[in-house]
């Protein structure tokens, strides 16, 4: 793809492309910069100025506040644990099943595919699922946050589709070399699918990181809560209208400060934001392997 024989049209296109994407990137990232700036601002400034990118009076009190107890460190630890173990579980379950289903001649494949699709549309709902988790003895354990979502049917179908697009010749030759299906999956298919694995690993990881609802349902012990439960609660509390706070003792009617809310959002977002740039390397690697396989 040499750039030296670009036509004028292509150069104009390039110019517009850069411009358009830059504007889009700025629009998407500005509100987050506001939240970031706001987390370092004072309450007074936040209520006065509706939007700013640099705080007038720099203050780290919001961060001092949230990091002053060990709760946040513990919950970050929990979130990381769930995300790592959960994602590995997800990938193990999804990749194996997707590979088996990607083989068109597998007997019973259509039946299972229909089973998967059906489960995507019809679900028993919150209460029956909760009862299954309870009967399995998973309540109040992190297993309850990992196993009930071990496979996303959506991801499974797309990964299966990616696998189907790999050139069949490779697998054939590997099989002739004496590999079993397991060997083919491990030695040929997975290495060739790094972009896909990275992508869906990211999807699963972000899903775990952002999930607060399962934690609320399945974990009764608040010392086990992940970060998102805290984040969600602080955001929701600061959203309450005063008259709605009938529940609170009148002496303690004070919702979290805006800056604290923003600091919690920043703390909850930055770690997972960093995952993507790390994974981007694998996207490039996929292309490289793709060219070798020839």
């Amino acid at each position: 793809m040499g750039s030296n024989h670009d036509s004028l049209g292509e150069k104009v296109f390039d110019g517009f492309n850069y411009l358009f994407l830059s504007i889009f990137a700025v629009i998407t990232v500005l509100p987050f910069i506001y939240i970031f700036a706001g987390s370092f601002a004072t309450e007074a400034e936040l209520s006065e100025r509706s939007f700013f990118l640099i705080p007038r009076d720099f203050s780290i009190s919001a961060y001092q506040y949230i990091f002053s107890s060990n709760t946040i460190f513990r919950s970050i630890g929990v979130s990381i644990y769930i995300t790592v173990v959960g994602t590995i579980t997800n990938l193990a379950f999804t990749l194996t099943m997707a590979y088996a289903l990607s083989r068109r001649d597998l007997l019973g494949r259509n039946l299972i595919m229909n089973l998967v699709i059906f489960s995507m549309l019809f679900s028993g709902g919150m209460i029956p699922t909760y009862l299954v988790v309870k009967e399995l003895g998973l309540l109040n354990s992190y297993g309850a946050l990992i196993l009930p979502g071990a496979i996303s049917a959506f991801n499974l179908i797309i990964i299966k589709n990616f696998f189907q697009q790999l050139p069949p010749g490779l697998e054939e030759s590997a099989r002739i070399d004496g590999c079993t299906d397991l060997g083919v999956l491990w030695r040929i298919v997975l290495p060739l699918s790094m972009p896909v694995i990275a992508t869906f690993g990211l999807f699963y990881a972000v899903g775990h990181w952002n999930n607060f609802f399962s934690a609320l349902l399945y974990l009764n012990d608040h010392t086990k809560w992940p970060l998102q439960v805290m984040l969600r609660e602080i955001v929701m509390l600061s959203q309450l209208a005063i008259g709605d706070i009938n529940n609170m003792d009148p002496n303690y009617v004070k919702p979290p400060e805006q800056s604290v809310k923003m600091a919690v959002i920043v703390t909850g977002t930055i770690p997972i934001l960093l995952v993507y740039p790390l994974l981007q390397r694998h996207f490039a690697k996929g292309v490289l392997l793709g060219s070798i396989k020839g």
């Binding site: 193990a92 379950f93 999804t94 194996t96 099943m97 590979y99 088996a100 289903l101 083989r103 001649d105 597998l106 007997l107 299972i112 089973l115 998967v116 489960s119 019809f122 679900s123 028993g124 709902g125 209460i127 029956p128 699922t129 009862l131 299954v132 399995l136 196993l147 009930p148 071990a150 496979i151 499974l156 079993t180 299906d181 397991l182 999956l185």
Partner: peptide, 29 residues
């Protein structure tokens, strides 16, 4: 089936997952 036995082994954990966590609670419908 015999020829694809390893594929079925690969399929099984996922299948069990769907049966336990998706179809057992299906009475909710």
């Amino acid at each position: 089936v015999k020829k694809d036995r390893w594929l079925y082994v690969l399929l099984l954990p996922g299948l069990i997952y769907f049966l336990v966590f998706k179809y057992l609670p299906m009475w909710g419908v």
